[in-house]
Design a binder for these strands. Sequence first.
DNA 1: ATTAGCACTCTACTGACGCGAGTGCTAACA
DNA 2: TGTTAGCACTCGCGTCAGTAGAGTGCTAAT
Lengths: 342, 342
Amino acid sequence: MLDERKRKILQAIIDDYVSTAEPIGSRTIARKYDLGISPATIRNEMADLELLGYLEQPHTSAGRIPAAKGYRFYVDSLMSTPAISENDVMLITNWYQTRARRIEEVFQETAKIISRMTRNVSLVLAPQFGPAVFKYLQFMPLDNSRVILAIVTDTGYVENKVLTIPEGLVFDDLHRIAERINRRLSGQALEHIRSSVFHDIRQDFQHDRAVFDTLLEVIRQSIAGDKQERLYLGGTAQLLAQPEYRDVKKVKDLLSMLEEERLLCDILHTKESDGVVITIGGENKYSGIQDCSVVQATYRIDGQVVGTVAVLGPTRMEYGKITSVLEFMHRHLGDILNRYRL
Amino acid sequence: MLDERKRKILQAIIDDYVSTAEPIGSRTIARKYDLGISPATIRNEMADLELLGYLEQPHTSAGRIPAAKGYRFYVDSLMSTPAISENDVMLITNWYQTRARRIEEVFQETAKIISRMTRNVSLVLAPQFGPAVFKYLQFMPLDNSRVILAIVTDTGYVENKVLTIPEGLVFDDLHRIAERINRRLSGQALEHIRSSVFHDIRQDFQHDRAVFDTLLEVIRQSIAGDKQERLYLGGTAQLLAQPEYRDVKKVKDLLSMLEEERLLCDILHTKESDGVVITIGGENKYSGIQDCSVVQATYRIDGQVVGTVAVLGPTRMEYGKITSVLEFMHRHLGDILNRYRL
DNA sequence: ATTAGCACTCTACTGACGCGAGTGCTAACA
DNA sequence: TGTTAGCACTCGCGTCAGTAGAGTGCTAAT
């Protein structure tokens, strides 16, 4: 464990480096931070800290910068995460009110807000409807040849699709078919509706097999479609402001990665837990972001964990501030979403 | 008007510059392109072309690069736009089939495909439902306290929202209310449904005013929401591969702009026309993209123009290829979307 | 244990220099 | 008169050496 003085020095280095992105030397610390010790002493301590793995040196005659282990210690033991200010809360509330009308806009706006407040790329994983329960499907007339198929789950989510009425059937036939399917499937969890169930029902449809099969395909697709959650990205341009991305190649690599929705979802999923989780540099499993850190938190609707909010950026980031912001979102996003009646 | 030889030289310069991004000199042209004239002659011609504004010189001892006027002449008179190859069509069809399940995914995939084929940023403006006609609204039961309100238009688009059943009403009451509203509004164009109409209907609801007002607000929002079209972006990372964006500051500016959905919509809207439209460099009104070109085309569903596909990139772009791709999308995107039954 | 002093190291910046690519001009040529 | 060869000139770019500055580690004094 580090003694008080080493902690103070480490904290000073990290705080300074986070804001300036420059390696920091003993003299600077002595000058800026009033620790009551001379640069020489600080040098000795810094040498120790480097030996212990908390700091590293870009080259011999440069100052020190925090190593991954240093950041880790910082977030675990040194960092303070004050709740965000009244003022910020007001701002946020205001943004939501003026910008977000539809549910997707709430997610999009959330991503924007987070990226704006943290000056980093933000990721918002919108609810996946995995645990949803099938309630019923219903046909709604559209015109002579077409109907709308709506699938309703207990969460109030409606998937809809326009279908052409098959040859030889009228609207009422579809209505009856729907009733039969509903009787069988109502109350089933979407994820449990599998081929076997369909197979059973299919027996009931000696004639109209073709219709049934079309329907079935649509339903299956709808279910599959819902499971695939949506990812909202915010503030990719913020990346460019960071000095670690002065090199265009790095930017390109990261940006390409950010376009891989699947991958990002995976990354966020591997670390689900209740509070704010911070993954620093090499702690990330995916090699493309080993010089990045991820701060993430889940949020709930009605007690159910439904999604994740996260911030992605270089390891040099304001962990305290970011944690505060995500802590807030973790607590309130559910309520905000509820107001939009998901 | 330019004589044959000048045209050939201009074409050679543009073709070469587009692929190499390097200023091109007289020697190189003489070597690479078999025009049967010596570098000295080419030099003279190039000097003329520069005087006429078709070319410019980054500095005295560099080769020439095309000026905006040069590109303009190129796209108007020199460029060939062969239809895209059988092979590409196959690839595209395949991509759609494997990747796109829901309608939004079709747009997203379209953006990706365009950016992949053109190696530039793509923009896809999804249908706005301005000209849609209100068909009916319908309540669907969800649980004891909540219902789903679905609003159906003649295009088969369904907007849905979960509502809490107001105190003192039961599902059947809502049903009756819906019927009354439908009788009045059915067949009206969404954009014509204005406060005045609502006002009329409101007379019918001596009691239940509160319910009616809530409903009304939801409907109004739904209508407003639909009008605001969605923009899909593809291949922002492609930008970074272009040598003109070797400078991070430029990337940042452009990327920030790409996050302004509104702005992009406006830019695309100002140049709507039936075929492929090309806007080069300074021809763009918005100052942020004056060193960029935009190639855009509208697409139709059932003969109605419903959206725009576009490519945005540095003025140095493969206008021919890009035009071919957008020409294809302009023709077929409507059909593809139709297959998904929008 | 702390600190002042000092030699040492390494980077970033600067200016000089030469190379190469390309031009414009002139004069010769068909 | 249009085309071409030759040539002097210009300019950007990469290389190289030299310098300034920041920071370190070590040693000796406090």
